[in-house]
């Protein structure tokens, strides 16, 4: 069991190393013009240079901030709204059709509207990121709250639990798996939208860095930015997974 896990880790590591080696060979052989494809060595050097003498760290922080604020806003709003809708049958039947109409709307269609209303501002970015990433959490919370075992509500009635206690001690923990799954999906959406907003509105962040690098044919810088974006996606997903398995420890017993 342990050994197979280690084996898989090792295998994935080897695959990653192989791909990087392949990349290096392709770059060295000039299979693609270096204007478009720098080798991993050049990309790495550019990454280091960006951190030490450039403002890459500031850009990284910018993207992380946009992503985090938007995602947190969406989380709070999504869970609160979802709890309200999900815990009432009437609300569900009134609001669900509207949600079904709004949900498939591509967020890219919202961006021009947001720009028209809020300008090329941080506020616009916050709105677009939050609006785009709220859906998985909103729908997850609605589903989670609607699926709470009715027997548990009866237990709460017999115990005379307050409304707040019922939400905090029964509905929320019961819906936690759905909510957390939504939060995990939203994380990716938030990152994508942060980059898009930075590109469109010229906000400080990796999106802007990548765009400017591409326009100036600084392919090594471009790749450094893309690598950082990949890293953000990877690390946040990892952190979310760790938080999830900690919060849902009780589910491990069930499996």
């Amino acid at each position: 069991m342990r050994w197979s896990v280690i084996g898989w880790r090792l295998a994935s590591f080897v695959v990653a190393a192989g791909l990087i080696a392949l990349w290096q060979v392709a770059a060295d052989q000039r299979l693609v013009s270096p204007v478009f494809l720098p080798g991993p060595d050049r990309a790495w050097a550019s990454l280091m240079r960006g951190f030490t003498s450039g403002d890459l760290l500031a850009k990284l922080m910018g993207t992380l901030t946009h992503m985090a604020y938007g995602w947190l806003l969406a989380s709070i709003g999504g869970v609160a709204l979802g709890a309200m809708i999900g815990s009432s049958k009437a609300m569900r039947s009134y609001v669900a059709p509207t949600l079904e109409l709004l949900r498939p709307l591509p967020v890219s269609a919202i961006i021009p509207v947001a720009i028209a209303a809020l300008g090329l501002s941080q506020g616009m970015a916050l709105f677009v990121i939050a609006f785009g990433s709220v859906w998985p959490m909103l729908l997850g919370t609605i589903h989670g709250f609607a699926a709470v075992e009715p027997r548990l509500y009866e237990v709460a009635r017999v115990l005379h639990m307050s409304r707040l206690a019922v939400i905090l001690k029964i509905a929320l923990p019961s819906a936690a798996p759905d909510i957390l799954a939504g939060m995990r999906l939203s994380l990716t959406v938030a990152l994508i939208l942060a980059v898009v907003c930075e590109m469109l509105a010229g906000l400080d962040g990796l999106g802007q860095w990548v765009l400017l690098s591409a326009r100036a044919f600084r392919s090594a810088d471009l790749f450094a930015g893309v690598m950082l974006l990949g890293l953000i996606g990877y690390v946040t997903a990892l952190a979310m997974g760790a938080a999830e398995s900690r919060l849902l420890r009780w589910q491990a017993a069930r499996r």
Partner: peptide, 21 residues
């Protein structure tokens, strides 16, 4: 309304317990 002096033991114990506690 239900009162605390009256406790109810449900048949479906699996549903009446909080699985996360």
């Amino acid at each position: 309304a239900p009162r605390r002096e009256i406790a109810v033991v449900f048949q479906d114990y699996g549903k009446a317990l909080l699985p996360w506690r």
